[in-house]
Simulated assay, not measured.
Amino acid sequence: MTKTLKQTVDQRLAVFKMKMDAALQEYVTDEIVQHMLNLTNHSKLPKELYYLVAKMVCEVAEPEVDESGEGIVNPLAGVKSLKVGDITVDLSGSSSTAKAKDVDEAIQSLLQDYNRQILSVRKLRW
């Protein structure tokens, strides 16, 4: 059974009930693949790394929201601000700049965590 990289990533996202915007998924996948190609000296991503790429992409994805309310992990997820007495706390933190920075930091952390597995398929340069 031969799958493309996109099929492998989509399948893992579906199995683990994760969601990710299509454009963000493509960007994160491309960045991870490019890093792997640079690190392994390959011109094309080896099929042995497809599942590792899918795993790394899923670590950046967010869990799907359960509409029934049974699987809610954070009860304050929809709250933008909270005021108790004189204290006001803004919990939104959803600026596009902050999100982009978070995604870049998450990708860099992932690449460092999985370097050993990536290097197992490295080609030597002479």
Rank of each mutant, 00 (worst) to 15 (best):
T40P: 03
Q108E: 15
D66W: 05
V28A: 03
T29R: 03
E26G: 05
R122E: 09
K123M: 13
D30I: 09
Y51I: 12
T4L: 05
D113H: 01
E48L: 13
T88W: 04
T29Y: 01
T4M: 04
E26F: 09
Y50C: 05
G93L: 14
L124Y: 11
Q108A: 13
V15E: 06
P75V: 13
R116L: 01
S92E: 12
L111G: 04
S95T: 13
P75N: 08
R12G: 03
S94F: 10
E48M: 13
V65F: 12
S68R: 13
V57E: 00
K44A: 08
D113K: 03
G71R: 11
M1N: 12
V89H: 03
E31W: 10
L24Q: 03
L82D: 02
E48N: 05
S94E: 08
V15I: 14
N74M: 10
A23L: 12
L52E: 04
V121F: 06
Q7T: 12
M20N: 01
E31D: 11
L124C: 06
K123G: 07
V33A: 00
E67S: 13
Y114A: 06
I72C: 04
L82K: 03
V9H: 00
I87R: 01
L37T: 02
V73A: 12
E59C: 01
R125W: 10
A98G: 07
D104N: 15
M18V: 03
M36L: 10
T4S: 04
L82M: 11
V73D: 10
L76D: 06
N38T: 08
K99Y: 09
M20Y: 02
L124W: 10
V57P: 00
T88K: 07
Q108N: 15
K99F: 08
V57I: 08
V60P: 00
I118M: 10
I72V: 15
V65S: 04
E70W: 06
A22N: 08
M56N: 03
A98S: 11
P63G: 03
K44W: 05
V28L: 05
V15W: 03
M20H: 01
L39M: 13
S109K: 11
K123E: 12
Q117G: 07
Q11S: 14
T8M: 09
E62L: 09
K47C: 00
M56K: 02
Q117M: 14
Q11W: 12
Y50R: 02
L5S: 01
C58D: 00
E62I: 06
A22T: 09
A100H: 03
A98D: 14
A14C: 08
M36G: 01
D66G: 04
K17N: 10
K17M: 09
Y27I: 12
E59P: 00
E31T: 13
K3G: 04
Q34R: 09
T40R: 04
I118H: 02
A100K: 11
E70I: 09
L49I: 13
A14Y: 14
V103I: 15
H35Q: 09
C58S: 02
R125C: 07
A106K: 10
V57A: 01
N115M: 13
